[in-house]
Amino acid sequence: MTTPPPDPLDQLRAMVTLQEQGFRSQVPLIGPLIARFRELWNGVATKWYVRPLIQQQNAINQQQVALLSAQVAGLRDVVSRLAVDEARLHHQAVRQQDHDEWLIDLDHEQVSLTRSQAEFAVRLIQVERLLLEIEQRLARLEPIPGADSEGS
């Protein structure tokens, strides 16, 4: 099992507050004295000048991290929604292709039906012509009963 890479945002959170550092001295015997002196002297400057700057910077850092956290959360949400949309799009594309194939089949079927209809129309016209021809022949062969008496 591999450990996941550290989250850069967590790393940033760990560094958000600036810390004042204590003074140390490596000089033997009088080292603590020197450190104490520096600390006292530094207290004068830090108290009135550096500490407010640190506090201001800390506030800025906290705000930045909060903002970044919100943006990262937003981005993660977008990414997950994109994945859902992508899956949906893929599904739609498959359905669209099914739909296209279905329409193409219908189009072919319609053409086939139109052709059959045309064939039947041609046959019907031929039958009609044939019937007309038969009627004309019959009319020539057999005078309509009573036609003579009506005419005379």
Binding site: Q97, D100, E101, L103, I104, D107, H108, V111
Partner: peptide
């Protein structure tokens, strides 16, 4: 698009 689909199938579209 319809004519291309009719002739060549989905590849025509």
């Amino acid at each position: 698009v319809r004519e291309m689909g009719y002739a060549l199938g989905p590849a025509g579209i």
